[in-house]
Design a protein around this nucleic acid. Structure first.
Lengths: 344, 344
DNA sequence: GGTCTGCGTGATAGCGCTATCATTGTCAAG
DNA sequence: CTTGACAATGATAGCGCTATCACGCAGACC
């Protein structure tokens, strides 16, 4: 019973015949119901139902030279940051005519170019790309895209079209200023992946520590490996072997921060007493750990949702949002930097 | 400079003119290079490059009545289980002609039906759906899909077409048998979401405890809310208030297990001494916690990869895999059930 | 009654590509 | 020199839909 090979899909014409109207009228009844009479609308609906008609998207796209495809390019499908953004996107797309086409660039500029070309061949209705560090080729592909484009996660100079995000540098600086304010003096930076976005967080760390006269490069522990809980522990262990006197850690990611916390537990290092920990992103786990983790709240779902709003709005000619939107961030001071339990 | 509105996209005909051949020859040169002469191939390539030709997928799909779309239906984009599966899918799709079209059913059968209809309107090359609990409507839509279909995550009787996964009931039973073997006697079940898949894990728990003569329904703590770290803690707290004598917890998900562990730390309940904890899925964090968490290893990436292999294979007429593939599971005994530190 | 307006509908012509069959040229076999 | 086979290319006809323009008709207005 599988593969009823080409049982000749039902087309508009079949519906038209069944409803006793012309094909174009069926098309109208389906797309602009207000343009046809009540009677026709009902007959068409009945015929569609009876025949199980499903419109052919390829034909629609070809004839109207527009699609409902929203191309979304993200660097990782397993990274929680992007799954949250994605969640926001899907939420907002929900119930609209748009359909998301997801591409995984795997943090590769080349891959991004390749995917961009594939996406463009579909004449998407809009494009959402992650970050502001596209290659020159990608940038020009985007500029020629002939559809709204939103760069998400970060804001910077020279948007290709629209932009939504926040300054990672400033967010990191604020987090580190918090650590300084809490009295920590030998504050380390623990970072993984070290893509441009992470790099700018490191810049923010440097900003804050230099301003406080506390910067010391031997307190910076980074790796190109992708972020993970285990890696946080490993980086911290490594750091400790070099700088056993470290008294706080700013992690470029909550995964790492949690990993650091576990490693501290393993070594009976009290948090926040002997060690302060600050993460980045406000993943759900940071509220749950013991002690709870101070972190930088980032508005990932908001970014996803608004990116869609920007595109839909632009297409409708009524974009309510500015072309460059800074959604900001907040430092959530929790127990791991002493807020609740106090320093000991 | 944005929106160079309709600068009349380059078509096959333009390329044909530039390469001084006919349109169909260009089409062939692009799709079946071995069918045209070396000379033509070069000229076409040059013309494509020079004009920046990008094929129109809609036209291709319409003319050939086949697409490269691989429809993937998952219940959540933020659930780590599915992001891992997705990762496997993207890995395997990488470099093939296929492109993934993702749909988020949000654990709703109705949503699934709706998405299925949308997907079918694209005449996908293949379909991947999560679980085996489709509604009757969805099942018949799938049965008529006229393309390979793979149900993933779970195996059961009556596959719509193909199937890859494992028995959640057996996996849960094995995990609970492990807890029994480790000497735990008042073993609780902590479960969230309670979708059919989770329900079957509960069944496995009941199987094991009844077999050991240890089943007690007051030790079952579940909620329809989605799984989270915080929820794990809350459910455990609730459970403790009813059954302070509980000595082990089997969680239907690692998120919950980690939450339970944090709550235990908060209450100074020693793990695995006074409390054994077992999770489900082997998320990366379970190797990193202190103590590390015993869990059920599930092969999520493998499932994703093989689902693609099954579809690609079927389409090529050379599917190397069985139509129903059980990828199994393993119980990873770690510190949280006493393996490393021993019971105290 | 004639003209105008606008609504509801239909006829026609593609959108850009590929399937199919036809045509040409080349070369080996007879 | 003919024939046939095959390789390379082309002409033609859609795929299923929508944009566009055309048409018929009812009611409004003079």
């Amino acid at each position: 019973m599988r593969k009823p090979q080409d049982h000749k899909a039902v087309t508009l014409l079949d519906v038209a015949a069944a409803a006793d109207v012309s094909a174009i009228t069926v098309s109208r009844a389906l797309r602009k119901p207000e343009k046809v009479s009540e009677d026709v609308r009902r007959r068409v609906a009945a015929a569609v139902e009876k025949l199980g008609y499903v419109p052919n998207l390829a034909a629609q796209a070809l004839a109207s030279s527009r699609t409902n495809v929203l191309g979304v390019l993200i660097p990782s499908v397993t990274n929680n940051v992007f799954s949250d953004v994605l969640h926001g996107i899907y939420q907002e797309v929900q119930g609209t005519r748009f359909q998301v086409q997801l591409g995984n660039t795997r943090y590769s500029a080349l891959e991004e170019e390749k995917l961009l070309r594939i996406f463009l061949s579909q004449r998407p209705a809009g494009l959402i790309v992650s970050g502001i560090d596209q290659s020159d080729v990608s940038r020009s592909l985007l500029a020629e895209a002939n559809c709204p484009v939103v760069q998400i996660m970060e804001i910077g100079p020279e948007p290709v079209d629209m932009m939504i995000g926040f300054s990672h540098r400033e967010a990191a600086r604020a987090a580190c200023e918090h650590l300084v304010a809490r009295g920590y003096r030998r504050i380390a930076f623990v970072g993984a992946r070290m893509d441009p976005r992470t790099q700018r967080r490191l810049d923010g760390y440097v900003d804050a520590l230099e301003a406080a006269g506390l910067f010391d490069e031997t307190l910076v522990a980074t790796t190109p490996q992708p972020s993970s809980f285990t890696l946080g522990g490993a980086l911290f262990a490594d750091l400790l072997s070099r700088r056993p006197d470290v008294d706080a850690v700013f992690c470029n990611n909550d995964d790492l921060a949690v990993g650091v916390l576990f490693e501290a537990q393993r070594r009976r290092i009290t948090v926040p007493g002997r060690l302060g920990i600050c993460g980045f992103n406000d993943f759900e786990i940071t509220r749950s750990t013991f002690p709870s983790l101070t972190t930088v709240v980032t508005h990932r779902e908001t970014i996803g949702r608004n990116a869609v709003t920007m595109i839909a709005g632009t297409l409708a000619g009524t974009n309510p949002l500015p072309r460059v939107l800074d959604v900001g961030y907040e430092v959530a001071a929790r127990a791991s930097t002493g807020e609740v339990s106090g320093r000991r």
